[in-house]
Design a protein around this nucleic acid. Structure first.
Lengths: 216, 216
DNA sequence: TCCTTTGCAGTACGGCCGTACTATAAAGGA
DNA sequence: TCCTTTATAGTACGGCCGTACTGCAAAGGA
């Protein structure tokens, strides 16, 4: 077996090129030719490593999910293994609020694939729901922990609160991309929502979290 | 001026055909040929009424915004001019939770255009933000009304609560399209969120709204 | 050393794309 | 009546698309 090349590495290079192309131009600009040019390889090489367009898109979809997962694990690690639920939730939600170019790229790809999956049966696969499911599960678990510790009222339903927070984070991510909210305004809203959840009887607007910018 | 035809009507027929094509196949399937075939006219006629692809897409974008606006006004009318804020909000949010084919189509087009606008400068226009802005303004106003009437705590911030509710509705709409939530589950979540807002000290899960299915 | 496999480039093909151009039937105005 | 304008179809063109096919340099195994 001569001239051994790390296939995983090559595939990652190509899906990364696809990501860059998609950021400027959308998924419909992610053609074999454009991606190959961006990656600095021939069109045939993309075909060689992915076979068909559908396979390329599926691989890119997985690539994005992995990137979100990695960012998520990094955020949990940064906040500490056994941080209080509120801080853990804050950190987890922050993953979906893009601040730098890399997270903007990840977020945009994520929503682009989500919307594409609505009309493209090839992209409509159970794995696509994995990220939202895991976020929801994570939030629900943290809220249950908080409730057990008496940090939130017994009236709150962890499942429903988790869904609301997950949709809030996803929506804020999209809003930031669309220029409707700044990352700071989005982080402020997350803090406000958490204040309403954890300090329901306080004047929610006046005291929320340690500050604006350390959600990242 | 012979053979007078209602241009507005023709344009509406064609943008409606574009909507149907987009539902099956996404915006990238909305080509002149496909749209013309769906509308039962020649390719040239589409060009005749819209000039270029960009103009066609812009017109379709406006068409969708108008449809959302019409649904919204109908919902407000259905609930009554001076209904209590909580019911008015419920009705307004229900506009974004698709139940039938027509509202699914509208919702899908709306998110498709939103995502497309993220990477297509032609579609990134101030009017695109009009629908979310109006929803936010509507919600903030209703919450202010409720606060003035003592129906919600003075601690709530109408602006931020409005943003959270708007993002919740938008996110739930997308979730329904993606098969993550059923319309009933989404309506239940809206009721839960409203219960938390209007009855913060009650056991929120156990009493929310008049029932599941009369958000539509 | 030589052969086989691997990694890659180049080219070609059929198809769809947006768009420009031409033709023409019909209908109101002169 | 005839002419001009309008609404429509048809066709043609250059370009990009995904994909299949051919060719070839290089490197490990025999």
């Amino acid at each position: 077996m001569p001239r051994k090349v790390d296939h995983g590495q090559r595939r990652r290079e190509i899906t990364a090129a696809l990501a860059r192309i998609t950021v400027k131009g959308g998924l419909e600009a992610a053609t074999f030719r454009q991606v190959a040019a961006e990656a600095g390889v021939s069109v045939n090489l993309v075909q060689y490593y992915f076979g068909s367009k559908d396979e390329l898109l599926l691989a890119a979809q997985r690539h994005v999910a992995e990137r979100v997962g990695r960012r998520f694990r990094a955020a949990r690690l940064a906040v500490g293994e056994d941080a209080p639920p509120r801080d853990t939730i804050r950190a987890g939600l922050g993953v979906f609020l893009p601040r730098d170019a890399e997270s903007r790229e990840t977020t945009l790809l994520f929503v682009a694939f989500f919307v594409a999956a609505l009309t493209n049966p090839t992209l409509y696969r159970p794995e696509a729901r994995e990220v939202p499911d895991r976020l929801h599960g994570f939030l629900a678990e943290q809220i249950r922990r908080a409730r057990a510790a008496g940090e939130v009222s017994h009236g709150v339903d962890p499942e429903r609160e988790a869904t609301i927070l997950a949709l809030l984070a996803a929506g804020l991510g999209q809003s930031i991309l669309g220029g409707i909210h700044t990352p700071d305004a989005a982080a402020d809203l997350v803090d406000y929502a958490l204040a309403r959840l954890f300090d329901p009887d306080a004047s929610a607007a006046s005291r929320h979290g340690p500050g604006l910018t350390n959600i990242h």
